[in-house]
Structures are given as structure tokens and as C-alpha cells.
Computed example of a mutant assay.
Amino acid sequence: MPVVDSIAEYEHLERVNLNMFNILSVVLQEQSITRAGVRLNMSQSAVSGTLARLRTMLGDPLLVRGKSRLVPTERALELIGSLSAVTECVELLSGRAHGKSDAIVPRKCVVACIDEISSILVPAITAEILRSSEHTSVEFKSIEAEDVSQELWSGSVDTAIVSTLGEVPIGHELIGTDELVCLMSKRHPLSRQPHISRAQYEKAEHVALLSHRGRPQYAIESALRARQMSRRNTVAMPFADVIPHLLERSGLLFTTSRRFAEHYASFLPLHMSPLDVELPPINYFQMSTFATRDPLRISWVKAKVRAAWKTLQAENALNVP
């Protein structure tokens, strides 16, 4: 390549700045140069000029005129995910460079939560995040314990709340504990007793919460085996929030956390009874990784989860250490 062409190419690339990709991202969202200009506080000609430069640089029209809007090309659709990451990095770097305190606040939080505590914890986390930032959205995922590490390392989840009946893994944050109880209909014969004996528990018919892979809760099964106990799982399903309504209309027992049982017994005709066999406590802990995301932003999300548990503690909804 002639030297003059190399210099020309270098000067062309030098004039490309990351803000151009932010402009493209807004144009793709609005599918209108006029609306994008209003949103960006730029003139229509400036937005058009940036789009023209990007078309030349990327060798693609990016947006073509439709009946009532600009329509993204296939190449532009492929870029959308990358543009989101680029614009977020631009905001992050420029915000911190100018000392903006909100530069660590993410546009979106993705929180994974195990099913049996989600009905109590998810509303509290949502309230905490929305109260802390009017510009942040939150997405929740139901997740399998064995998939947590992969989801965290891939960057598709910011933090995950999982449980164990054993020791909390080293390096993870214990945020709450609870105990196992039995939940049943108020019409169930065992609801008239102060506690449930081993023999009664093993004779009764149970409903088991399945993982999305079709397996009963491993932690509970392991705890029962450790006490040389078993249960008859007559019904099994992967929907934790459906089980209380099933109990209301059946003679089944459900082994679950005290807080889950108390929550549903507060508005459904259900009864909660402890077992006369001592079982290990449920430990809830928070998992995260800084491998693929900005550490300050991950810390922000974790702090909101922690604050949500403290709020629940104040409302006597959870036992927090």
C-alpha cells in the first residue's frame, strides 16, 4: 500500500470517535433522524452527517427509508448488541472522568433468584433499585444453581441469590438464613398438631418443587437423607408460586422455608408446622463476579440486593445475620 494511502486511512480512523456509535445507537432506536436529533440535542444535519460517515466506514447503508420510518439493515441489526456495550462504556468513562457520582449506576440490572424466595425478595429488590435510580431498569431470571457460575462469567447476570442447606461456598456473601417447615391446607389433619413427627412426615403425601431440569430440590433431599428420612413425592412441579394454591385444594404437604410458608399463609387458608426432626438451616447467599463487568457497577447492584434484605428484616420478613 502506498504511504500516502496509509496516512489517509490513519487520518480517517483518527476522526472516528466513540460518540458516533452512540449517535448510531439512538438513530436505530428512534428509526428517525429528526427524533434522534431531538433526543441527542443535535441538529438534523449533524446527525445525518454522522450517519453518512458511519455508512462509509462500515460499508453498509445501515438504515434505509421505509414507508414511515428508517428501517435497519441486516448489518445494523447485528450491531445493536455491540452498540449497547460501546455506548455504556462511553458513558461510564466520560462520567467518571468528569467526576459524576452516578457514573457507576447501570442502565440495567440483571438479577437471578431462586424460585422459593423470589415471591418475597423480588419485590423488595425492585423497589430498592427503582428508588435509587430513575434511569435503571431491572430484569429478573430464574436460574439453576449449577448454571449460576456460567451465567455470571458470561456477563448475562450481574448477581445471583441462591441457597444451600450446607456451608456457604467460600468467597460468597451470606445475606440471610431460614428454617425448613411444612406448609399445608388448614383442613389437613396434621394442621391441628403443634409439630409433625418423622413417621407422620414419611407417611404423608408431598408436593416437590422441581428444578427446570426436572429434578427435586437437591438440598432438601440431601438433608432428609442425612437424617435417614424420606418423603412420598406424589406431585412435582417447577412453579413455586403455584404450590400454595395446590395445597389449598389438596391433602399434600410442602417442605419449604418458614418465610415462604408465612408469606402465603398470611392470605391463603394454609397452615405451617415445624418438624420434630432438626434439619439444617437454609443459607441464602449472593454470588457475583467482576470478570466481565465493571466492578463498581456490580458492587452497586449487590448493595441494592443487600439493602432489600435489610428492608425485609425491618418488616420481619427474613432473618438476616
Rank of each mutant, 00 (worst) to 15 (best):
P269M: 08
S197M: 04
A208H: 04
R249N: 14
W300E: 06
H206K: 05
A223G: 03
P238E: 14
A223N: 04
F285Y: 11
R232F: 09
A226V: 04
Y201E: 09
A240G: 12
F254L: 07
V207N: 02
Q286L: 15
E205Q: 15
V277Q: 08
Y284W: 09
H245W: 13
D276C: 11
V207H: 01
H195A: 14
L224F: 02
Y218A: 15
L270V: 05
D294H: 07
P281S: 06
R231T: 05
I243T: 02
T234M: 08
Q286R: 15
A265C: 10
R297P: 07
S250R: 08
D294P: 05
L270I: 03
R258W: 11
S222L: 09
S197L: 04
A223L: 02
P280D: 02
S191I: 12
F254V: 04
D241C: 09
K203S: 13
N233F: 00
T255M: 13
T256M: 00
A291H: 14
R293M: 10
R297T: 13
S266R: 06
S197C: 05
G214L: 06
G214S: 06
R293Y: 05
R227A: 07
L246R: 10
D276P: 08
S230K: 12
R249T: 14
R258G: 07
F239Q: 13
A240R: 10
R215V: 14
N283H: 14
E278I: 10
H195Q: 15
S273I: 06
S288N: 10
S288L: 11
S266G: 10
W300N: 07
H212A: 14
H195L: 14
H271P: 06
V301E: 03
S299Y: 10
L270P: 03
L252A: 04
P274C: 09
H263L: 13
E262Q: 15
R225G: 08
V301L: 03
L252K: 02
A204F: 00
N233E: 04
P194C: 05
E248Y: 09
E278S: 13
M272A: 14
F285I: 02
R232D: 10
H271M: 13
H271F: 09
M272T: 15
V301N: 01
P295N: 02
R293F: 03
Y201F: 15
F239P: 02
H263I: 07
D241Y: 08
Q200Y: 05
Q228M: 08
H206C: 11
T234R: 11
R215M: 12
K203F: 11
R213P: 08
R215C: 09
A208L: 06
S191P: 12
E248S: 13
F285T: 01
A236Y: 05
Y218R: 15
E248R: 14
R227K: 09
P280F: 03
Y218P: 12
S211P: 00
Y284V: 04
H206M: 05
G214I: 04
Q200N: 10
E248P: 07
V235I: 13
I243M: 02
T292P: 07
Y218T: 15
D276G: 06
I220K: 03
R232S: 12
L253P: 00
V301R: 01
W300S: 03
V277R: 06
F285L: 01
L270T: 03
T256Y: 00
L224G: 01
Y201S: 13
P189E: 00
P194G: 01
W300D: 06
